[in-house]
Every structure is written in structure tokens, then in C-alpha cells.
Simulated assay, not measured.
Amino acid sequence: MALLVICSVLSAVMLIDAAVRADVGTALLLAPWMLLVLWFVYVVGVASRVRAQRDGVFVQNLLRTTFAPWARVQRIDMRWQIEIALDDGSRLTCFGGPSRRRPQRLGPGRTKEDANGDADDAVAALRRAKANAESVSPVPPIRRGWDIPAVVALLAIVAWAVIAVLVTRG
């Protein structure tokens, strides 16, 4: 999230500078390229997440979204990232969750540090949410889809970039 804020501020400063030094039209021709970078930072760094809900778990990996009712979740494990085994045989790797880090080396006089505390807490929270979930009959299906707002934003930015290229080449 901090990287997105820093990139947003830098983009705004550069666009304001372009508008002041050249004109607003030039800034509008430069804007889609900066917005494309911001979109990429958002999708890779912010949008991916894992969220436990009362009736299931919601996972977003980049642009793909999956909602699995708790009854469909077979197992929740931690390998390098949180992995959820579903009853249809598929495994859902959660890019947006905490990840297991390499154990840290210990120097003289240092004590062992728990490098995976956050990851273990997230897995335990998901397991508690599953254990506390009420059983629903019939069991709803697993829903997979796309992050529609992010895809629409990408299409708008690409259209704007195409227009900017056509205006500058024309």
C-alpha cells in the first residue's frame, strides 16, 4: 500500500509539472502511461488478499477472485503461502496472504526469532473461522470470477493510451 501511495504522489507531481511547464494537453497525453504503472502496482501489490467471512473465504489473486463456502474447504495449510484445498480437488494458493520467510541467521548472543508468526496467525484465524462457521444445506458452489472494476480500469487506461498515441502520431 505504501508503494502505491508513493507512486501516486510521484505521478501527480510529474503530471502537475508537465501541465505547468508545457500545457494541460501534454499532461493528458502523458497521464495514461503513469496510470498504467499505478494500475500495475495496485493489482500486484494491493488487490491480492485473503478475507475470512462468516459464510466462506474470499481470495483475490491479481485479477482472479474466488469465493469458497466453508463447507467446500477441506484443508488450510501454509507452505510458502496460504494454500486452501477445496473439495473439488483444486488447491487455491493465496498470493495476498502472509508468506513463510526463510529462517533468519543468528549471530553470537542472539536468540531464535519466530520469523513466521504472522503467517501462522493468519492460518489459525482462517481455521477458527471455518470451525465457527454454521453448516448450510445445500452447500453453495465455489464462485470464481474476475475483478471487474480493475479490468474495466485497465480497458479505459489502454483506450486512453491508444488515443494518446494516435494524437501524437497524427
Rank of each mutant, 00 (worst) to 15 (best):
M1D: 06
A2Y: 14
L3N: 08
L4E: 01
V5K: 05
V5F: 08
V5G: 06
S8P: 03
V9P: 00
V9N: 00
L10P: 09
A12W: 13
I16H: 08
A18E: 13
A19C: 07
V20W: 15
R21M: 13
R21Q: 15
A22F: 14
D23E: 11
D23C: 08
G25H: 01
G25S: 08
A27V: 09
A27W: 12
L29G: 12
A31G: 08
P32T: 02
P32I: 04
W33P: 04
W33R: 04
V37Y: 14
F40N: 04
Y42S: 03
Y42F: 13
V43D: 01
V43S: 00
G45T: 03
V46P: 01
V46Q: 14
A47M: 13
V50G: 01
A52M: 09
A52Q: 04
A52G: 09
G56W: 03
V57Q: 02
N61S: 03
N61H: 00
N61I: 04
N61W: 01
R64V: 11
T66G: 03
F67N: 02
A68V: 10
P69C: 04
W70D: 02
A71Q: 12
I76N: 05
I76S: 01
D77A: 07
R79P: 03
E83C: 10
D87T: 09
G89E: 12
S90V: 01
L92S: 00
C94T: 10
C94D: 06
G97R: 02
P98R: 07
S99W: 12
S99L: 12
R102S: 11
R102H: 14
R105L: 05
L106E: 11
G107P: 01
G109E: 07
E113W: 03
D114C: 03
D114N: 10
D114R: 05
A115M: 07
A115D: 06
A115F: 06
G117C: 10
D118E: 06
D118S: 05
A119Y: 09
A119N: 04
V123H: 05
A124I: 12
A125S: 11
A125M: 10
R127I: 06
R127V: 03
A129G: 10
K130A: 08
A131W: 05
A131L: 09
N132H: 14
A133P: 09
E134Q: 15
E134K: 10
E134W: 05
V136I: 12
V139K: 02
V139H: 01
P140A: 02
P140K: 00
I142K: 00
I142T: 05
I142E: 09
G145Y: 12
G145K: 11
G145R: 09
G145A: 10
G145D: 10
D147Y: 01
A150E: 03
V151M: 13
A156V: 12
I157P: 08
V158N: 03
A159S: 15
A159K: 09
W160L: 12
I163L: 14
V165S: 14
V165N: 14
V167I: 03
V167H: 01
V167D: 00
V167E: 02
V167R: 04
R169C: 02
G170T: 08
